[in-house]
Computed example of a mutant assay.
Amino acid sequence: MEYTTLGATGVKVSKVCLGTMTFGEQNTEADAHSQLDYALERGISFIDTAEMYPVMPRAETQGATERFIGSWLKRSGKRAGVVLATKVAGPNPNLHWVRGGRNKLDAANIRAAVETSLQRLQTDYIDLYQLHWPSRNVPIFGASAFDPGKERACVAIEDTLAVLGQLQQEGKIRHIGVSNESCWGVSEFIKQAELKGLPRIATIQNLYNLTARHFETSLLDETCFREQVSLLAYSPLAFGQLTAKYLDNPKAHGRMTIFPANWSPRYMRPGVLAAAAQYAALARAHGMTPAQMALAWCYTRWFVGSTIIGATTLAQLKENIDALGTVLAPDVVAQIDAIHASLPNPGQ
């Protein structure tokens, strides 16, 4: 395992982070504990979750992921050995069961979210507390263009930072990050922290994979480099499309077949399917599995602090971790870039 430092925090984490959003939906509590045990055996020290998990989000299962991690932490006694990250849900009318739909990123909601996450996780502190998506209007989850017509009332960034600072002082959270953020958002979080003496964000958890490389072209990579904000890359396999399992078998078991087709339509776009087929052919031509190549590419990008991987089986988890040792030859990287140039960001 390789390790890196989160932003300017001095906190070391594994380059591979265990994502857990399948715990409680596709994985039982026993499955979750087995994955956590195996991940730590392989050197993973970084675990990511969220209050709204598992996915797909449902009132009946919300919070189960954190509860499964909490029961594992209690059973294993390994809290001190992991860097634990979770997230607070932002405004979303479709998540009306999370705090009764009161999901603004204000003091009352963030405090309530932190307290319930601590209870479910059975811990006294959260190492990295993240805003799952912005309070303001911003294109996320498949929307690619900013639309001023969708402006809405939102909590000021400095107000959100202020309560996070109070929770830091109380010892309930240690470091903070954002997720699904824009270049403007990162810059504004940094500016308000510096102007008002508030806590500085250390990480940004954004979509990044072979079909979604917008992070490279939106100035986020330069902004985050200069401001020492680490990228936590999520969905590196594009909901399984980059494993080619759906290409090989359209009815393969996974999120794309067990969840409603309209839940994440971006991964069903013709461009994504075409790109996934070309990347799979390239990987196989060079003696790699499609998943191995997609993950190895993500693991070695200079601006990726840690890559969040998820799995429903230990065999998948093993393959995903093993890809860390794969070295991509320069000609393979050149061919990846050529495919990207012909089919740029279909999954963004």
Rank of each mutant, 00 (worst) to 15 (best):
T20N: 01
T20H: 06
M21W: 06
M21A: 10
M21S: 09
M21N: 11
T22M: 15
F23Y: 05
F23V: 03
E25L: 07
Q26W: 01
D31N: 12
D31W: 02
A32Y: 00
H33S: 11
H33M: 11
S34W: 00
Q35E: 10
Y38S: 07
A39S: 10
L40H: 06
E41G: 11
E41V: 03
R42P: 06
R42Y: 04
G43F: 02
I44R: 00
F46L: 10
D48F: 04
A50V: 00
A50H: 04
A50L: 04
E51P: 02
M52P: 03
P54I: 05
V55K: 07
V55N: 14
M56Q: 10
E60R: 12
E60I: 07
Q62H: 14
Q62A: 15
G63E: 02
G63H: 02
T65L: 07
E66R: 09
G70R: 01
G70D: 04
S71H: 10
W72Q: 05
L73P: 03
K74Q: 13
K74L: 11
K74C: 08
R75L: 10
G77D: 07
G77I: 01
K78L: 15
G81Q: 14
G81R: 12
G81L: 07
V82N: 04
V82Y: 02
V83N: 04
L84F: 03
A85D: 01
A85I: 00
A85R: 00
K87S: 03
K87E: 04
A89Y: 00
P91V: 07
P91Q: 08
N92R: 14
P93M: 11
L95M: 15
H96A: 13
W97M: 13
W97K: 11
W97G: 14
G100Y: 08
G101W: 10
R102S: 10
N103E: 02
K104I: 00
K104A: 09
D106C: 14
D106Q: 14
A107C: 13
R111M: 15
V114E: 02
T116M: 05
L118T: 14
L118I: 15
R120V: 06
R120L: 10
R120M: 08
R120D: 08
R120I: 05
L121A: 08
Q122N: 15
D124W: 02
Y125T: 04
Y125V: 05
L128P: 01
Y129G: 09
Y129M: 05
Y129A: 06
L131I: 15
P134L: 14
S135L: 06
V138I: 12
I140M: 12
G142A: 08
A143L: 04
A143F: 04
F146T: 07
D147S: 07
D147H: 06
P148L: 09
K150Y: 00
K150E: 13
K150F: 00
E151S: 13
E151Y: 03
A153G: 15
V155S: 12
A156M: 13
A156S: 12
T160I: 13
V163N: 02
V163E: 11
V163T: 11
L164V: 00
G165L: 08
Q166F: 06
